[in-house]
Design a protein around this nucleic acid. Structure first.
Length: 491
RNA sequence: CGGGAUGUAGCGUAGCCCGGUUAUCGCGCCUGGUUUGGGACCAGGAGGUCGCAAGUUCGAAUCUUGCCAUCCCGACCA
């Protein structure tokens, strides 16, 4: 394993790649644009997934699974939807291979052409709504609140580990409701679930808002989002929740009989977060020594490193550590004991810092004699000798403190990087210098939005929910505006 | 798909301009030993279609042409 990590200041992209690869989370694979999520990275994802899944179930949702393949004709039933996704779909055209009759190797059997091509799902709205059509007849069948954990494929031109891979893991919730009001409430509720998860568990502060028409999901009436800020001043869309209106219900003819015995189209939502969240986690917290993972979702919350002095010290140290392990596990703390004799303590210290393990304990003969243990926290890199008395509680309290500290630090950074701006010069200067979110007046037109994007690469990340209404002039056009919106360059 | 760059061992690289024994070095890996409080040391060892193909040449990692792949910057996007 390589020691050298590119520094954040030197090359931010390379720093990020190094964190992912050398931190042991994932790697590029043999397939262009696809990544291998390694066991350590997948353990992180599992912790995130399990917590989200719990929150979905607490809000009344159930899990199901729909096919990977979507008949081509389904995708084209909703006009905006196909428009948005057509350019990035992988297509299955054949179902069989054969030996190359002209030589060596294997070729696609031309006789095995599919009558209708299958699309590898870029998202599952169409196949799901085609199914819902059969599941929904009456208002008594509503609401239908289903989530699926799945992989999807979007054939992106340029990929980045976790942030944008050709295939990614995610969850997608798809709900059907009897009324518009109920569907809107659902979309907003799930946005709240996402925000709570990202802030409480990932320690990444987010801004809840709605997307402008041009940034909206293909086929949605309204897209809610949570936006996070990365350490390089760029924004990252961390999750979205869509109010789909009756668009998919109409496209797939999903009607129900209401209490008045009248046919109505159902109202829909969809919402999703993906492995991209791991990218957000990395870029929000890490430093030049490596990853810094929040205790609530870290694969290991604590690693214990023994400091041996000759063969004879191993037995006693191992025995003492077993004691500590038992007391930590009794409090539900995820702990790893690394008494691998092939690497030395210094190597292990550096390695676990690179991997972002929140707390490290080091136990040697010297500590045992004094009934203490060395405790080091990853977020601040502070090291202390603490008493073995009540060590489990000491660790548990420290884990909570780290979680809180990580959030507060990220929050302070985020808040310092929301800059109100009132004229075009400052807008450009702020964007090129400080970066971050810019709170500026916008005249509400797609033309201005597009123009700003062309000029600066900044997009409207969102119009914050419960946004303060105030009179102002658009930062570009000078036309009247009723509120500030958040601009930023984004991933 | 446009602009730029790069392909040499698992990873990172030297050599290429100016063709010439057995392709350089570091990390990692294997064996044995000594070690262990911040990325250990000694000794020995294994590992290569020099991205692929064709051409020039007595001779190609090196020159020429074509192809392929990857990365970065755009466009696109969770």
């Amino acid at each position: 394993m390589s020691k050298e990590l590119t520094s954040r200041a030197e090359d931010y992209s390379q720093w990020y790649n190094d964190l992912v690869i050398k931190g042991g989370l994932a790697d590029y694979s043999a397939v262009r644009g696809c990544m291998v999520i390694k066991p350590y990275g997948f353990a992180l994802w599992e912790n995130m997934r399990d917590q989200l899944d719990k929150m979905f179930k607490e809000t009344g949702h159930v899990n199901a699974y729909f096919p990977l393949f979507i008949p081509k004709s389904f995708l084209s039933k909703e006009a905006a939807h196909v428009e948005g996704f057509a350019k990035e779909c992988a297509v299955v055209t054949h179902y069989r291979l054969m030996n190359d009759p002209n030589g060596k190797g294997i070729v696609v059997d031309p006789d095995a052409k599919l009558e209708e091509e299958l699309i590898v799902r870029p998202t599952s709205e169409t196949i799901i709504w085609n199914t819902y059509k059969d599941w929904i007849q009456s208002y008594r069948d509503l609401p239908l609140l289903i989530n699926q954990w799945a992989n999807v494929v979007r054939w992106e031109m340029r990929t980045r580990l976790f942030l944008r891979t050709a295939e990614f893991l995610w969850q997608e919730g798809h709900t059907a409701h009897a009324t518009q009001e109920e569907a809107v409430i659902e979309a907003e509720k799930m946005l709240d679930v996402y925000a709570e998860f990202v802030e409480t568990y990932m320690a990444v502060p987010v801004i809840k808002g709605i997307k402008t028409a041009s940034e909206r999901f293909a086929g949605a009436e309204n897209t809610y989002c949570i936006e996070a800020l990365m350490q390089d001043g760029k924004a990252l869309q961390a999750g979205t929740s869509h109010f789909l209106g009756q668009n998919f219900a109409k496209a797939f003819d999903v009607q129900f009989l209401n209490k008045e015995n009248k046919q109505e189209y159902v109202w829909a939502t969809s919402w999703g977060v993906s492995t991209r969240l791991i990218g957000a986690l990395i870029m929000a917290h890490s430093d030049d020594q490596g990853l810094i993972l929040p205790p609530k979702i870290a694969p290991f919350q604590v690693v214990i490193v023994p400091i041996y002095k000759g063969e004879e010290s191993k037995g006693p140290i191992d025995a003492k550590v077993e004691e500590i392990m038992a007391s930590l596990k009794a409090l539900g703390i995820r702990v790893k004991y690394d008494n691998n004799d092939n690497s030395r303590p210094g190597w292990k210290f550096a390695q676990y810092e690179l991997q972002g393990v929140p707390v490290r304990l080091a136990m040697g003969l010297r500590d045992m004699e004094n009934n203490v243990v060395e405790i080091a926290r990853r977020d601040t890199k502070e090291k202390n000798s603490v008493s073995m008395e009540g060590i489990a509680n000491t660790v548990a309290n420290l884990l909570n403190e780290i979680q809180e500290n990580m959030y507060n630090k990220a929050l302070a950074f985020r808040d310092d990087n929301i800059t109100p701006v009132d004229n075009w010069d400052d807008f450009v200067k702020t964007l090129d210098g400080k970066g971050g979110f810019i709170a500026a007046h916008w005249d509400g037109t797609a033309e201005t939005e597009e123009k700003i994007k062309e000029l600066t690469k900044a997009t409207i990340r969102c119009i914050p929910l419960q946004n303060k209404q105030e009179e102002g002039k658009c930062v570009l056009s000078g036309n009247p505006s009723v509120q500030r919106v958040l601009f930023a360059r984004a991933y």
